[in-house]
Amino acid sequence: MIWLSLVASLSMVVIDWSSLRTAKRREVALYIGLIGLSLGMAVGYEMNLFSKVHLLAPIDALFRPPTKWLYHIL
């Protein structure tokens, strides 16, 4: 997955290159940030990090009880 995401991010930078050169600094930063985030995800995936760390845990913690309660009252 690292390999594939590297190739993907590289090629998308090449495709967007002409736009990136004229883009605002904020846009470039966002662009790089998003790519970095997904590369990080890919690395984490390959390291089997996410079978231990559950990224959606806060949302689960927040919304699972009300849903369960909803199922309960029906």
Binding site: S5, M12, D16, L34, L37, L39, M41, A42, Y45
Partner: peptide
């Protein structure tokens, strides 16, 4: 593009 990459990463990583 970067958003799609992020979605792709997230799809495999969030769950």
């Amino acid at each position: 593009f970067p958003g799609a990459l992020l979605v792709w990463g997230g799809a495999n990583v969030l769950f």
